[in-house]
Nucleic acid binder design. Structure first.
Lengths: 215, 215
DNA sequence: TTTTATTTTTAGTTTTGTCTAAATTTAATT
DNA sequence: AATTAAATTTAGACAAAACTAAAAATAAAA
């Protein structure tokens, strides 16, 4: 598989999680910052390689083979992110771009040794689950902070939006994975939350609460 | 720089160490397993980018800019090799191929953090020197085992040939970097050596001795 | 149910890096 | 010095992955 093919497979995988019935050409083009016509060309190629099942105008889904490939790419991406944060001291908003390159390094032995070196982590620095060597993904139980009951305590376990802006906001507020969050109050008008994070009181917009996973 | 351009620059760098007056088109083609005509095409491109100075039929040399790029690629390659051996437990004959891919990962911050994580090593697992962040290469004093005087003791500090076959031979004989070698005797007829390595007596052909660096 | 709008595909180009085959230049030999 | 051999370059072509513009299919609206 070329790097380009791998990127397509990965994007189809992520879009499939939202629209499992079939992924649109335009959606893929949008994610890869390319044109719909280029996507069509690539779908033919991936279809020939039995990585996707594709029928003209009907959208595309991953075959078993394609799904497995996608999981292996995601596995690599997330393991490298753990490496970058845990071992090299990068912050969680800096690692995505570098992992986008590292995820295309071929050796399976490398990734399994890396996995062991990192202590077989189950989640990346953003709380997203890491597929194991067979592609099995351990589901992480989680709720959005915007949806939990008042007066209960939780742990931060992940982010939905992992954009730099959002991650930097969390850093500024000293919110990290593992932080203890207690919801004190919820404003009826705009769903603004008053929370206590690691003992510190804070006001949080609904948009924030809607992008933070807790358990 | 594309991966292909980087590979050309790297090869020209290595060949320059042997023929500093100018590197031949065919030599480059041989190293990259490509055709002379492809090399010519690429030389034009690299020349346009001021990475090599190239005159038709006259061979090619790296410019200052090209030399610096080459050293940064070599730096990355060798640092990743150290990582693979020291941290992930690969053996020294397994790492070259993987490092060939890793050397093309772009981030400068990544490589400098990796350097620090590894403790700023000065040599890779084969004893080859690692350029620092500025491109400075600390010269490692070394002699070929085939050229040292009899009855003196040395440490293994590197290999000249780093082919899998040779490295596996060394593994089998329990010769590693750091091993203490004492030359007991040299056969006049074919320069076969009798040596003591870490206390164990061993007979070594001239071809072996000619590919092992000691200090 | 037509008509209009949107999405998707086809057809034809472009760029990068490669190739083959032919032409040219340099080096080696007689 | 002339000829042969080797190395190098040019010319033209190809595959991968992208693009633009036009055509076709599907979905939405009147």
């Amino acid at each position: 598989m070329t790097i380009s093919e791998e990127n397509y497979i990965k994007v189809i995988y992520h879009l499939s999680l939202v629209s499992p019935k079939g992924v649109n050409t335009n959606a893929i083009a949008g994610m890869l910052d390319t044109k719909a016509s280029s996507v069509t060309d690539m779908m033919k190629k991936l279809s020939d390689k039995d990585l996707v099942s594709y029928q003209k105008y009907q959208g595309v889904t991953l075959t078993d083979k394609g799904l497995h490939s996608a999981k292996m790419i995601v596995r690599k991406h997330r393991l490298w992110e753990v490496f970058l944060v845990d071992k090299l001291g990068f912050s969680w908003d800096e690692v995505h771009e570098i992992a986008e390159e590292l995820e295309h390094i071929k050796s399976e032995q490398l990734i399994n040794k890396l996995d062991a070196f990192l202590g077989f982590p189950v989640a990346d620095p953003h709380g997203d689950p890491i597929p194991d060597a067979k592609g099995v993904i351990k589901k992480i139980e989680k709720q959005l902070l915007s949806e939990v009951e008042i007066n209960a305590s939780f742990h931060c376990v992940g982010v939905k939006d992992s954009s730099t802006d959002f991650l930097k906001y969390l850093d500024k507020q000293k919110i990290a994975l593992g932080s203890v969050v207690k919801v004190i109050d919820k404003e009826d008008f705009d769903d603004t939350l008053t929370v206590e994070i690691d003992g510190k009181r804070l006001t949080i917009s609904n948009k924030i609460a809607n992008n933070l996973y807790v358990q």
